[in-house]
Simulated assay, not measured.
Amino acid sequence: MRDGIEQGTWESHRPKLTYPFDHAPKLGEAVDIAPGVKWLRMPLGGALQWINVWALADETPDGKAGWAIVDTGISGIETRNAWRAALAGPLGGKPVTRVFVTHMHPDHIGMSGYLTRKFDARLWITRLEYITCRSLAADTGREAPEDAVRFFRAAGWDEEALENYRAKFGGFGRGLYALPDSFHRLNDGDEVKIGDHAWRVVVGSGHSPEHACLWCPDLKLMISGDQVLPKISSNVSVFPTEPDGDPLTDWLTSLKRIKGKIPDDVLVLPAHNDPFRGLHARIDHLIGGHERGLTRLHALIAEPKRVVDVFHVLFRRKIDEYLLGMATGEGLAHLNCLLARGQAVRERDASGVDWYRAAA
């Protein structure tokens, strides 16, 4: 799970979002969002505690009533028990027809293998999300590659932090039930019939490679996954596999595109926190928060800085050993964005550490 460190919360002004539901579902319960659309939650633990998942009324190929599921929770006994309770309870014992996954992070895709195998259902996901997930899952149990160690050393990590990284490497796959061995590809712009309604696929990137949102114009609903969250800014990171990537530009471009494509009157169904109205205001706030962060960062690197030296202008929280990896990835995303805009330069010293300074 990769959700942000509240990068956009420096500003005292927040958009005036509205939350139409006065309570969220408990484990084993569901809240009706619209006809044939149910809101359920699966346990996560940690700061976020829950992930929202969605059940959409659908039919099996032979015409029996069932449920298409969107996102699945992280793999584990607690989540499996929560699914058993939900299926027997508010979902009425009806079968799962299809499993849609917005993106490849374990809290979203983790139980897809369990549900697809239990009901002989197909996983629906974008190609890059499926392939990336399989690639990361293959690292489980491996030693940390030297490329990755050099990557974090260049960011300014000390030897203790590098040793911690080596010890924890390869944990991604532990949050996954064995992935489905095949999938149905979702593409940007696809129109998918689910039950009585057509849902359009709107792809974004930056938080993950090819994140799929689902928008139903008839119901005025948008399942946003992690692409738009009401109270936190999703993690946007550079990783050792693509050290020169510019995911923040991808993220900002995606948000602008979503604002131009999806009307403001939708009810947004996010992966975390509660359903809300105010999509366009929230997008403006997310973009503005990152742009202000870039401005602060540009001013800071008037004198050369390492990645580990810039956290205080991007995040309000203290960055401890548990947040260091995420903060490094987000810090690099902002620095790489400045590099791409021609506003910064990077120089590596003799010890392999990168220093960033504002371009002349």
Rank of each mutant, 00 (worst) to 15 (best):
Gly73Val: 10
Thr79Gly: 09
Thr72Cys: 15
Glu59Val: 11
Ile51Ala: 01
Ala88Ile: 01
Ala88Arg: 13
Met42Lys: 11
Thr72Pro: 02
Ala55Arg: 06
Thr79Trp: 05
Trp67Gly: 05
Pro35Ala: 07
Ala68Lys: 08
Thr60Met: 09
Pro35Cys: 02
Ser75Gly: 14
Ile77Phe: 11
Glu59Arg: 15
Gly46Asp: 10
Asp71Ile: 03
Leu56Pro: 08
Thr72His: 03
Val70Tyr: 15
Leu87Gly: 05
Leu44Cys: 00
Asp71Thr: 14
Gly73Arg: 07
Val53Phe: 01
Ala82Lys: 03
Pro35His: 06
Val37Thr: 09
Ala68Pro: 09
Gln49Asn: 12
Leu87Tyr: 04
Arg80Ser: 12
Gly36Tyr: 05
Ala68Trp: 03
Arg41Pro: 00
Gly45Gln: 04
Ile69Ser: 04
Asp62His: 10
Trp39Leu: 10
Ile69Trp: 03
Trp39Ala: 03
Leu91Val: 02
Gly66Cys: 11
Gly73Ala: 03
Ile51Phe: 00
Gly66Pro: 11
Pro43Gly: 03
Pro61Arg: 11
Asn52Cys: 01
Ala65Val: 11
Gly92Lys: 11
Leu40Asn: 03
Trp67Leu: 04
Leu56Gly: 09
Asp58Ala: 12
Ala57Pro: 06
Pro90Cys: 09
Gly36Asp: 06
Ile69Cys: 03
Ala57Leu: 10
Ile69Val: 15
Gly92Gln: 13
Ala82Glu: 04
Gly45Arg: 04
Gly66Ala: 08
Leu87Phe: 04
Ser75Glu: 13
Ala68Met: 08
Gly73Met: 07
Arg84Gln: 14
Thr60Cys: 09
Ile77Asp: 15
Glu78His: 14
Asp58Gly: 11
Gln49Trp: 03
Ile69Ala: 05
Met42Trp: 00
Leu56Trp: 03
Gln49Ala: 14
Ala65Gln: 14
Trp54His: 07
Asp58Cys: 12
Gly92Trp: 01
Gly36Cys: 07
Asn52Ala: 01
Ala85Thr: 11
Ala85Met: 13
Gly89Trp: 01
Ala55Val: 04
Ile33Tyr: 02
Ala57Asn: 10
Arg80Ile: 14
Glu78Pro: 07
Thr79Pro: 10
Glu59Lys: 14
Ala65Pro: 13
Asn81Tyr: 08
Pro43Val: 09
Gly46Met: 02
Trp67Pro: 08
Ala55Met: 02
Leu48Met: 13
Ser75Met: 04
Thr72Val: 13
Leu91Tyr: 05
Thr79Cys: 14
Asn52Thr: 04
